[in-house]
Design a protein around this nucleic acid. Structure first.
Lengths: 216, 216
DNA sequence: TGTACATCAGTGAACGCGCGTTCACTGATGTAC
DNA sequence: TGTACATCAGTGAACGCGCGTTCACTGATGTAC
């Protein structure tokens, strides 16, 4: 991890000037969030991890929230890529692709808890950070478009609204991730893997979409 | 709000001794969490709100986490009661009662955001607070038992596992609550009410449970 | 009913700490000529 | 190729702040006799 050593001789560090401080600060923030949660991140400690003085971060970020928002923005971009890749990998069958996307969402939450926490647990005000709102919208758009294609496979007269499908699957995925897949001591124990739980849930939900009508 | 004034002459305050400081501190913590989120709560400010010195809370709580845990414990107890009442109110039809319980879960998250945040966003380590784990289990047990009864209405040969139902509905409810029902600036906008979204989701899920089998 | 006394639940001052942020500064970089 | 200079991206010291928690203390309460 070259960014931890300010005297690193690699291309990223050249003595007095860090050379890549913005990136280093984002990495440091991720490290801190992973260890202590979003509330445990501080600008001062991120600067320390990056090997610069406590004032240096303010050359790159207006304040602490701006750094956190940058982390969240990158997280949403990564999530969008992850979801897109999963969808494409599951094609041509839309149901298969859709389920792969659900698994990928959960996989992201598990593999990148720091990004995930910055995105969903940091309570950043969306209206204060337009880039964040845009990045979040972009990630959701991936899910939305997938739902659109999936809905298109239903007979025209009983085609469900794709927005609703997207919202339901997002909610279920996020619920499973938050309750059962957090890699910290507040996670609840499960008699199965979160992946199995989510997959079964999505499957049953999709079955419900194709069912003839309301049950007795 | 008598607890804000230390010189209140009511039965809760008698001069030097507060008389009901434990309760007052819990109320103050709820106030702070509602305003600033779980990370914005401090022992010092809770003491200030309760009208006592910063050292006073330590007569009642070991440390800051213990006070937060107490709030979360009470939240889980309230949630358990809320869910029980909703279930009973929806009987005798298990499906109706179950859906009423889902709405009640969401209603709790919306009506009591401070309790909800202490319960789910405070990252308290369950193994450090046995009472918290017990309270959480108790609330989940309500949902679990309801799912059991609901599962019992299915024909014996295609009866779904009740634990799975409970986990799915909890996840969906929690996901909708976290993403769309937080009363702060990080909430995502929806073209419908969270209640409608959740109700439709639970309905479709239950339809899926009764569907003949996996879809094409 | 009165009194001595143990216990309870507060006080208030103090501690060490780490934080966010600002400021005047300076070393390094890169560009115009 | 060399040099003057503008700009960039750091430094380091300082500020005011609020926090969690501890400590010796004391006023209030309630109980035994």
């Amino acid at each position: 991890m070259s960014w931890t050593d300010p005297r690193d001789t690699g291309p990223g560090r050249r003595g007095y000037h860090h050379g890549n401080l913005r990136e280093a600060l984002v990495d440091a923030a991720l490290d801190l969030i992973a260890q202590k949660g979003p509330a445990g991140f501080t600008v001062a400690e991120a600067a320390r991890l990056a090997g610069v003085s406590p004032a240096a971060p303010y050359r790159h970020f207006r304040d602490a929230d701006a750094l956190m928002a940058e982390v969240a923005v990158r997280g949403f971009h990564r999530l969008a890529e992850t979801l897109t890749r999963a969808w494409n990998g599951g094609l041509p069958r839309p149901v298969t692709a859709f389920e792969a996307m659900g698994r990928a969402y959960l996989g992201f939450a598990r593999a990148e808890p720091a990004y995930y926490a910055a995105m969903f647990d940091s309570r950043l005000a969306a209206d204060q950070h337009p880039e964040l709102a845009a990045a979040s919208d972009r990630a959701f758009a991936v899910l939305r478009e997938a739902a659109e294609i999936l809905a298109g496979t239903f007979p025209r007269d009983k085609r469900p609204p794709s927005l609703m499908i997207a919202l339901h699957v997002w909610s279920l995925s996020h619920g499973v991730a938050s309750l059962f897949a957090r890699p910290d001591a507040s996670r609840r124990k499960l008699p199965m893997s979160p992946e199995e739980l989510l997959e079964a849930g999505v499957l049953l939900y999709l079955q419900g979409l194709s069912a003839p009508g309301p049950i007795g």
